[in-house]
Design a protein around this nucleic acid. Sequence first.
DNA 1: CGCCTATTTGATCTGATTCAAACAATGTGG
DNA 2: CCACATTGTTTGAATCAGATCAAATAGGCG
Lengths: 260, 260
Amino acid sequence: MTSAAAGPEHKALVKKLRSIAPLSDEETRHLLELPLHVRQLRPGTDIATEGDRPHVSCLVTEGFLCRFKFTAEGRRQIFSFHIPGDIPDLQSLALELMDHSVGALTPAKVAFIPHESLRQLMSACPRIAQVLWRDTLIDAAVFREWMLGIGRRTSVTRIAHLLCELFVRLRAVDLAGDDECDMPVTQAELGDALGLSTVHVNRSLQELRRRRLIRLNAGILTILDWPGLEELGEFDPTYLHLKGAVRKKLGPDRTSSLWT
Amino acid sequence: MTSAAAGPEHKALVKKLRSIAPLSDEETRHLLELPLHVRQLRPGTDIATEGDRPHVSCLVTEGFLCRFKFTAEGRRQIFSFHIPGDIPDLQSLALELMDHSVGALTPAKVAFIPHESLRQLMSACPRIAQVLWRDTLIDAAVFREWMLGIGRRTSVTRIAHLLCELFVRLRAVDLAGDDECDMPVTQAELGDALGLSTVHVNRSLQELRRRRLIRLNAGILTILDWPGLEELGEFDPTYLHLKGAVRKKLGPDRTSSLWT
DNA sequence: CGCCTATTTGATCTGATTCAAACAATGTGG
DNA sequence: CCACATTGTTTGAATCAGATCAAATAGGCG
């Protein structure tokens, strides 16, 4: 657990917020002055648990975290995956009581920010408050999209959609190549996120491979056919509300398209 | 379409926000000065559609609205139900582009508030901005809870949970009696909200009636056994983040309990 | 090597869907 | 006030997507 002042952790945060909305120089300066307490997490470590009343929020710097909750019968639902730049428990700033848990999926590095400092930041820069609000609203948009999938889409479409989403989000913070990205998530975890059993996730992934849309091996996802995957997954990135620059990546066989 | 200044519409809003967080007199005064444009809606009318860029938000005054989105194959998922006091499209204040639709489920009365006025209000009363943020976060908490249900709970539990939620929310704004409330929602709509077919909703409702937990007739829900329904539905209202006063209603056969 | 965790395969079962039709309630116009 | 259209609820039967159970295989890694 180290204390950092304007280290690489801050850059992840700035990059993420810039993917949501533009930032002025002054706002950026304020962000860089946030006190961060960096900590390493091993997989399975929870940084907040249902029932907690946290006084810090955590910025992901390396690795994947997720938010989740258990059924009375002990079945788990994962609500979201979080990648570097995300602040998965930002909501605890406005909602005292945690109604779900947040934990590391992989070895991860996170930086804790005292709520105190965030409140100061927000009153100094109301625009940043806006951006943080926006961020939680985008969170909610992702929840809705997952809900639509779990409630109404077939297993194969659901998985394809999730892979599209993660790929696009990773690209938005420069953590994906042209056609591949890390995907250090087990099939059991995918199942918990998609409302499917592990066995069925496995079979649906095989279907995606059979159709030559993706490769998925040793935690690396390779997109073999982006337009195909997007179509099968019914993926339209609008709900991610990303700023212009990091838009949809087009497939190699599609010329710059007419629709915008 | 009328223009109102400090009518009954404002009271619904104040009551709702008070159920989330306390308000000072000055804050209340500011709220009462919001310009509202009241409008009557017939069932099925959409007040915002996926792709829109609204410049007003709408406060529900009478009736039920819902938010929803369609799959590529035309299957609908309802994300939330909205009752008087709610501002279902508050998010359009911070996220320009609608990524889903909002429509009336029943005959309804809504009051439109220009984004402009809301922005002024928020800069005059930063605390109200806080409360509005809180409200959207509670929205997101409800999405998560629904996700958990759709992904991991059985159909009967899912329905029971939803009925509990609506009853508690209606009580929080004084729209429910001790053991009954309006429930003007068709079984098809329940299905779209719960990720179930109409037929299966019908059968699961029969199960709830067979167990003597509820009566549901002509749009009126009667709770016959609250503790039983709560247990079957695995319902714990924490995620609604309601302020103390409007807590869980206890069953008639349970003395004031030990846990708090 | 042996342990542990993750993936894969096969066989079987079931909760929920789909399709189809009957029924009930409400409203509309003649 | 009745015939008829409309919308919602209920029932039955067939089918299916996905779950469950069980076991085999494949990778790391100390």
